[in-house]
Design a binder for these strands. Structure first.
Lengths: 209, 209
DNA sequence: ATAACATTGTTAATATTTTAACAGAAAAAC
DNA sequence: GTTTTTCTGTTAAAATATTAACAATGTTAT
């Protein structure tokens, strides 16, 4: 199932998480408007996304939650799962690890890297921390395909180079510094300050009309 | 300057940050293709955004960095700045605070909230931490308009209620749980797992062709 | 002086994403 | 058993966002 719109992919991930919660409440079916309500989007959009992935609900009952979860998994997960590394064990890096703990997903954080000798060779939230000099070696031996970068901005470029050299396939850059990667590496940058400034802009025009 | 496209707003924030770095390197002018290169976008898009905000560069020299920074500020900042609170001082909350330290922006984190008595009444990265019961009171007395939610998902709904009751204008929800707010409150949700699953999807189709 | 070049500003074209409209069909109501 | 209701699935329309195309014009080279 290729060629799905990027936005649809994002929503599929969100649908799945919402559905898992619903399922754990012993619900078996869900309507498009319920799912939409959970995610603050329109029911049409939900139906359209679900149409795109080729699933059909039943009239008057909506979608079978379990089936839908499985289908979404088939689309966005890799068959064999993917391994993830966190590079930089500051507050943000540790937050990422605890964020993942207990989340049922095919992605597993299997290694963390840091330069601080006090952190190296310890285990954080079940994840072993290696010295950053070991990055290339561990990524290859563990077959890690995705890296989350949570180092200081000043280190971003250098770490990115190492990651690319180690053959990483995807990088999620939480550093405030944009980096460059070759075309075959998938890069996504996220900047918290941009998010906040955007909110600031939109709340600014939200006062007395 | 209203009615700018949402994406343009996001990029303006990113332009400014890139420009500040450039400025600190004693550069005075920048070309659209340079700025584009820093952000992995096309020069056309840069020019178009800059056109939309009504700025003009000079031919053959590009844009005057200082002027452009100032203009972007006029558009996305509030005249008097805005105050921000971090709710939840776990790893992620602390990461937010240190992320902001030293960033020159009109947004200031002036308060943090937590429920843990060991954290309450201490200062983290220059930001005082109050007990979460004080949330409404402090938000009003300090005139805080934006909140960053970094509490556990299980607390998200309750905290959101308090924030709304306190009259907050914008919420940035980093919790894995979507929340509901009235229409006049601006809400942005960001889920780290969704970002990662998206990368996983796109790297999945990036192997041997 | 003239030609070649490099760069902006802007309109038009294209692509992507969301929203609307509505037919179809099972279930419920009567 | 007929009508009404309530949902889905899908096509069409609208809105939003990006990219292309190119005129305009100052700068450099010759």
């Amino acid at each position: 199932m290729k060629n799905l719109p990027e936005r649809t992919i994002e929503r599929l991930s969100q649908y799945r998480r919402a559905l898992l919660i619903y399922l754990s409440k012993n619900k078996h079916h869900i309507f498009s408007h319920e799912l939409a309500g959970l995610l603050h989007i329109t029911p049409v959009q939900v139906r359209r996304d679900i149409m795109l992935i080729g699933y059909s609900g039943t009239l008057r009952q909506g979608y079978e939650i379990k089936e839908l979860i499985e289908l979404i998994g088939k689309i966005i997960d890799s068959d064999d799962g993917q391994k993830v590394a966190v590079v930089g064990l500051g507050n943000l890096g540790r937050a990422m690890i605890s964020y993942f703990n207990g989340k049922r997903t095919k992605l597993t954080i299997v290694a963390a890297f840091d330069i601080n000798p006090e952190k190296v060779n310890r285990v954080y939230g079940g994840v072993p921390c290696y010295h950053i000099d070991m990055l290339g070696k561990i990524i290859k031996s563990e077959n890690i395909s995705i890296a989350i970068m949570t180092v200081p901005g000043s280190e971003a470029a250098r770490v990115t180079e190492s990651l690319v050299a180690a053959g990483i396939k995807g990088i999620l850059n939480y550093t405030p510094t944009p980096v460059n990667v070759p075309a075959q590496t998938f890069l996504q940058e996220y900047d918290m300050i941009t998010s906040l400034e955007k909110i600031a802009y939109f709340t600014k025009y939200n006062g007395p009309e």
